[in-house]
Design a protein around this nucleic acid. Sequence first.
DNA 1: TTATTACTGTACGATAGCGTTTAGTAAATG
DNA 2: CATTTACTAAACGCTATCGTACAGTAATAA
Lengths: 221, 221
Amino acid sequence: MPTPEAGTSGAPEAQRAAGRGRPPDPVKHAAILDAARRLFFSGSIQALNMEAVARASGVSKVTVYSHFGDLQGLIRAVVLRQRSDMTAALDDLPSAQCGLRQALIDLGCALMSFLSSDDYVALQRMLATLAGKETWLGTLVYRDGAEATRDRLAARLVEASARGDLRAHDSRLAAEQLLGMWQGIQTTGLLSGGCPRPDAEELRCRVECGVDVLLRAYAPE
Amino acid sequence: MPTPEAGTSGAPEAQRAAGRGRPPDPVKHAAILDAARRLFFSGSIQALNMEAVARASGVSKVTVYSHFGDLQGLIRAVVLRQRSDMTAALDDLPSAQCGLRQALIDLGCALMSFLSSDDYVALQRMLATLAGKETWLGTLVYRDGAEATRDRLAARLVEASARGDLRAHDSRLAAEQLLGMWQGIQTTGLLSGGCPRPDAEELRCRVECGVDVLLRAYAPE
DNA sequence: TTATTACTGTACGATAGCGTTTAGTAAATG
DNA sequence: CATTTACTAAACGCTATCGTACAGTAATAA
């Protein structure tokens, strides 16, 4: 299973070396992808089918096929696009430096509001649904999402540790613990539809308490 | 949305007041449910369809319909059965009393090995897939699963707090933090197929480190 | 202009799955 | 016995969706 280019919004077809005839219309390409994304995230994966996509994007069905090959290719493209949006959002996480505690809290709040968003939840549901069929998609998103976030957080903890704000510790583990405390059982609940989306207040509280537990547990001796 | 009896393996049909004619065969009922469960957990939800269930359980398709009404009813029955298995497993969690730390570790190990099991992961995937269609299923499993576990764990923390082993704290929050630390980003990874199933060693380490962080953070002053 | 490619709209073939029907057999009660 | 209900096997109708074919139009390069 080669992760094909592991790249951008992905036009597996429609890249005819920019040669002779009429060039493919990038506007249509985007319209299809957008419509697919909308349908994809507007409920179940059932909602995403070729005819509906064609209708919603104001494009002929044949065009959809010629741009994305088949349904699987379209789904792949949607997931990859969502993944790149996601990594972009994670890159935009705040990196203020006004004290370790506040920095962690800011980061946690931004992250948790992202993790509670409908888009993220929908993406996770899709991956859960696709797991077993297109494993590499899940792997990809997991690496660029959860693992990358953990490692980025871990890097901050290492810095803090070097500054003497924290005792020596396994920072990847600690980062994961912090992420876990922030999420608690909420991610599970959101995913299965068992619990409602928390408000900002609730999130802030979770984040602060998690940070405080971590800081106390890893406080320099 | 009345959660119908919220009960056992559920025979919505096939309960004709035990009257006149030939009685329904409970063996077939169980066979259908088992086959459905097998198919349900052997990959995607796609694998669970009426014809396959009938074939796999060695029963006529009509019998499946007469026992479970329709496909939705069958899915419901399977999820409810899995839920009752799950709550049973959670009831069997160890409750040894040889010190708070060891008790938490034992509980954590048992719980994590359950949360990493194929059955649990498959169930979560199903709920994620069904979310938006049969919300109440997700709610049910979430209440009896995650929330119940959190509350049970919280009860132990309250006891420990009363004994003076921990400082005063919000025990539900603390329980959730501990659960979160145990899981880290692993549950996410397992669900999306992004990370492999961890071995017992790995789990034990996670559990112990989580317990230690919690005990240190909430240590009596 | 001509060749080439993109796009449209409609229609088609194929498959899969749901749920029902029918005709007949099997097991229970009165 | 007769009646009632459960079960089987095969077939049917229905709908949804995938993916393709065809005939025609639009845009671009040589």
